Simulated scan of single mutants.
Amino acid sequence: MNKLLGVSPRHPGLWQDIPNSTMSKKTDIETMLSHTQGRNELKQICAQLAQLSLQGRWIVLISPPNIGYKQMLASAGVRMDRILLVHAKDEVETMWAMEKALTSGTSSAVITWTNELDARDSRRLQLVAKSAQAVGIIIENANTHLPDSTINAQGEQVNQGSLFAAMH
């Protein structure tokens, strides 16, 4: 065996040449503070999401509020068959779902709507970012409810017709 290795390094990790792998790619998790339940922030990243949806991996939306995100994404050219919705029951489950989606290797982007992160959750996400294989975006303070007049004043009305049936 020593004759086969010669003077090459003995550690197997040093034999691998992985300059273009996902392990060498550093992925950050971006946090965006929102006063519009994430509507404006989602508009900013729609073009990027459209490109990512062409990769064939999932775009994961975790606990999105009803801000008309489906119409925004579809009009930006995002492949809707690549959208995966996750409805978490609380903040703990939301962070767990984001962590799993970022590190699974099956997602190209993970967008999470959540309340303000505490120090523990921020540290946890810093650790997750080291092994993340997808773009991570956290929209903070997004679950605070806005009055309807604020949403409508922003120039786009959410089509709520499909949510309610007329009763006679």
Score class of each variant (00 low, 15 high):
T103W: 00
D118L: 03
L125D: 02
S149K: 11
D148S: 14
T114N: 11
K100H: 06
K100T: 03
R120S: 13
K100D: 02
E116Y: 10
I138K: 01
A109M: 04
L102G: 02
D118T: 04
T150H: 13
A134M: 09
N115V: 09
R124V: 03
A129V: 06
D121F: 14
A129C: 08
D121V: 11
T150R: 13
I138Q: 05
N143M: 15
W113T: 04
A129D: 09
W113S: 01
D118C: 10
N115W: 08
G136T: 07
E99A: 03
I139F: 05
L146P: 00
A109S: 03
I139N: 02
L117G: 05
N115E: 15
L102V: 00
T144K: 15
E99K: 07
S122V: 10
T144M: 14
S104Y: 04
A109G: 03
N141V: 04
I138Y: 04
D118W: 02
S108G: 01
S149Q: 14
V135A: 13
V135T: 12
A142T: 09
E140V: 10
Q126S: 12
D118Q: 05
S104A: 12
T103G: 01
E116S: 13
E116I: 10
N141M: 10
S104W: 05
I139M: 06
V128W: 10
S107W: 02
L117F: 11
D121C: 12
V110E: 09
A134F: 08
G105C: 08
I138H: 06
E116T: 13
S122G: 08
G136E: 12
I111K: 05
T114A: 15
